[in-house]
Amino acid sequence: MELTIDSASDYAGIGLTDGGGLVHERSWYCHRRHSVEMLPAIVALLDCNGVDKRRLELIVACTGPGSYVGLRVGVSLAKTLAYALDIPAVGVPRLRADAERWLRRYPRVCAVHRAGRSDFAIAAYERAEDGVSTLVEPILVAAGDLLGSIPADCAVVGEAPADLVPDREGVVAVVAGVAGQRRPLNVALLGLQALDNGASRDARDLLPVYLRPAVQQPPNR
Rank of each mutant, 00 (worst) to 15 (best):
A115H: 14
V92Y: 00
R108W: 01
V75Q: 04
S67T: 08
K79Y: 01
V112M: 07
V90K: 07
H113T: 13
V92R: 01
A115K: 12
P88Y: 03
A89S: 09
P93Q: 08
A115C: 12
A111D: 08
R114W: 09
P93N: 07
V73A: 10
R104L: 13
P107K: 13
V73G: 08
G70T: 10
A97K: 04
Y68N: 03
G116F: 07
P93L: 01
H113L: 15
D86S: 15
R94Y: 10
H113E: 14
L77Q: 10
V112G: 05
G70Q: 11
Y106T: 07
V109M: 03
L95E: 11
R96S: 03
V75G: 09
A82I: 00
A97S: 07
L81N: 14
A84H: 12
R105K: 14
L103Q: 08
S67K: 08
Y68R: 03
D98H: 13
L71E: 11
P88Q: 10
E100N: 10
C110S: 09
T80L: 13
L95M: 09
V112R: 02
Y106R: 05
E100T: 03
R101I: 07
W102E: 12
C110P: 04
G116D: 15
A111M: 02
A115W: 05
V75Y: 09
V92L: 01
I87C: 07
R105D: 14
R105Y: 05
G116W: 08
V69R: 15
